[in-house]
């Protein structure tokens, strides 16, 4: 019915882009809080330095989280490599 649309280029879904960007900044913001161990930021820095010996990655490439579940502590690490 909206026949004018036919002649327009499809608009980008910028909301999806906003969501992805926010997820990254918010994850970083949360690194510093909760009761994560104090060594986490330093650990992240070190890992980033090691990764950079081999691949050029942005500061945001390494994510480190500690989760506690029922007395179990899980250190979760994510390294995002750039697209080739």
């Amino acid at each position: 019915m909206d026949w004018l649309k036919f002649f327009r280029s499809e608009p980008k879904n910028t909301a999806a882009l906003a969501k992805e960007r926010l997820k990254v900044v918010v994850a970083h913001q949360r690194d510093g809080r909760s009761n994560a161990p104090a060594y986490l930021p330093k650990l992240r820095e070190d890992i980033l330095a090691v990764v950079r010996k081999y691949v050029q990655v942005p500061d945001t490439a390494v994510n480190v989280h500690v989760q506690r579940e029922a007395g179990l502590e899980v250190l979760e690490m994510n390294i995002t490599l750039p697209e080739m």
Binding site: P11, K12, A15, A16, A18, K19, L22, K23
Partner: peptide, 17 residues
């Protein structure tokens, strides 16, 4: 605007926060 993909939806914001 949410329907057009121009604005974060309520579910998006809920998921992030």
């Amino acid at each position: 605007r949410v329907a057009k993909g121009e604005m974060l939806s309520v579910d998006d914001v809920k998921e992030i926060l």
